[in-house]
């Protein structure tokens, strides 16, 4: 299953994705997160040390988290601000922490946290606005290292066809 989380209020991106996905055999679920209540991560570390795997913030993010761990791919649609994802897009990533554990290991020459779940999801970004695209690509490559997965690429909302060609 492919999980697509739209953090923007613009449903036309989801619509365009739905339209494009009609012609493929991909099973995808689109979550409209702009209508959900999703807080920022408060860094409490409860998801590692008090209630392992569970976030202490009881809001709508739990719905996304539960789907995420069964997904093969996660796509985040985000508005951008200050050259990067806006806060709503970034919060989706900050709140992912429960999929990792407190335990540490080396992967190659760098430290990483051990994954909580066996199955991993690769991550793609679809952005609106005018970010520093090269940086966003670098960041997604780097961020996915933490989830033992890989970047599926970074696409503007006008490149839906290209993004969908990476969904399989």
């Amino acid at each position: 299953m492919i999980l697509i989380v739209n953090t923007t209020a613009d449903k036309s991106v989801s619509e365009a994705l739905r339209e494009e996905l009609k012609n493929s055999a991909v099973e995808a679920e689109i979550v409209e997160a702009s209508e959900m209540k999703i807080s920022h991560c408060i860094g409490c570390n409860y998801c590692w040390l008090k209630t392992p795997g569970e976030c202490s913030i009881k809001d709508d993010y739990e719905v996304i988290l539960k789907k995420m761990i069964h997904a093969k791919q996660l796509w985040v649609i985000s508005d951008t601000a200050l050259g990067f994802l806006d806060h709503k897009g970034k919060n989706i990533f900050d709140r992912i922490l429960p999929v990792a554990m407190m335990y540490l290991k080396f992967v190659g020459d760098q430290m990483r946290h051990v994954a909580r779940y066996k199955d991993k999801f690769d991550i793609g970004l679809i952005y609106k606005g005018d970010p520093d695209v090269d940086y966003l690509k670098r960041w997604n490559e780097r961020a996915t290292l933490n989830f033992e997965s890989k970047s599926l690429g970074v696409f503007s909302a006008s490149e839906i066809k290209e993004a969908v060609s990476c969904m399989h």
Binding site: H40, H87, K90, D94, A143, N146
Partner: peptide, 9 residues
């Protein structure tokens, strides 16, 4: 997650 926290953004 490799960048600045969502709340700071």
């Amino acid at each position: 997650v490799e960048n600045i926290p969502g709340l700071l953004i």
